[in-house]
């Protein structure tokens, strides 16, 4: 972590991860997972609930950020 904070690409990487966590929290707190009265629950491809869809998107953001940083910028690579 100290080596990541110590250079600009590392700080960008940490900022992306932090933003994804904050974004996730904001989405949850604002009721993004809930179904409004009278509406049908969100289902992507007919079966992926909102909780699953949002989580998969979150993991993909972390995966892409990790691949870019750890394979091109990590000081100990």
């Amino acid at each position: 972590m100290r080596e990541i904070i110590g250079h600009a690409p590392g700080r960008v990487y940490l900022a992306v991860l932090l933003l994804s966590v904050v974004g996730m929290m904001a989405f949850i707190i604002r009721g993004g997972l809930e179904t409004a009265a009278g509406e049908e629950p969100f289902l992507l491809f007919g079966w992926m609930t909102m909780s699953l869809t949002v989580g998969v998107a979150f993991v993909i953001v972390w995966l892409i950020a990790y691949l870019i940083y750890f394979f091109f910028f990590w000081p100990y690579r």
Partner: peptide
Amino acid sequence: LPGAAQRIMEIDPELLSAPGPYGEFSP
């Protein structure tokens, strides 16, 4: 899986989103 989701939609649609049928999983 779409068939499973459809069946749940018929019996208890609250099982498909938060907070769930008992209102447990609030934001």
